[in-house]
């Protein structure tokens, strides 16, 4: 038994790309206070909006997927901040009150 969560994500990413599917990778790069998933947690998003993995307990995945679709389109990496102090708090705040920064990049 191993807790190699990110492993599955990267293998999925490689498989999707091999199949010719567009994809973006989202990675938690910084957390403040309590946050549901540790730094390094990853999510791979397909061009059709499907995703594998997690960057939170489910609170921000929707917003990350939307941003990932933009990144797939533009090819420009982005950093997203989520948390109680964020302007998006009313929409996609973290219930736990923590803050998290997510890096989103296109898989070439």
């Amino acid at each position: 038994m191993t807790t190699s969560h990110s492993d599955d994500v990267l293998e999925t990413a490689a498989r999707w790309r091999k199949e010719g599917r567009a994809a973006a990778l989202a990675t938690v790069v910084e957390t403040w206070g309590s946050s549901p998933r540790p730094v390094g947690s990853q999510l791979v998003v397909g061009g059709d909006g499907s995703f594998i993995g997690s960057v939170s307990g489910g609170c921000i995945e929707g917003a990350v997927v939307r941003a990932a679709l933009e990144v797939i389109e533009s090819g420009r990496p982005r950093r997203l901040d989520f948390g109680v102090t964020d302007e998006l708090a009313w929409e996609v705040g973290l219930a736990c009150g923590g803050r998290v920064q997510v890096f989103v990049e296109r898989l070439e």
């Binding site: 492993d7 990267l10 490689a14 790309r17 990496p77 890096f103 990049e105």
Partner: peptide, 27 residues
């Protein structure tokens, strides 16, 4: 992320070779 980078990470893991991916978050 470039395709070669992704495959290099997977290869390092397969070979049990410790590695660190260094990303410039702006570029």
């Amino acid at each position: 992320m470039r395709r070669e980078t992704l495959h290099a990470i997977l290869a390092a893991r397969e070979a049990k070779r410790p590695a660190v991916l260094v990303s410039e978050l702006d570029s």
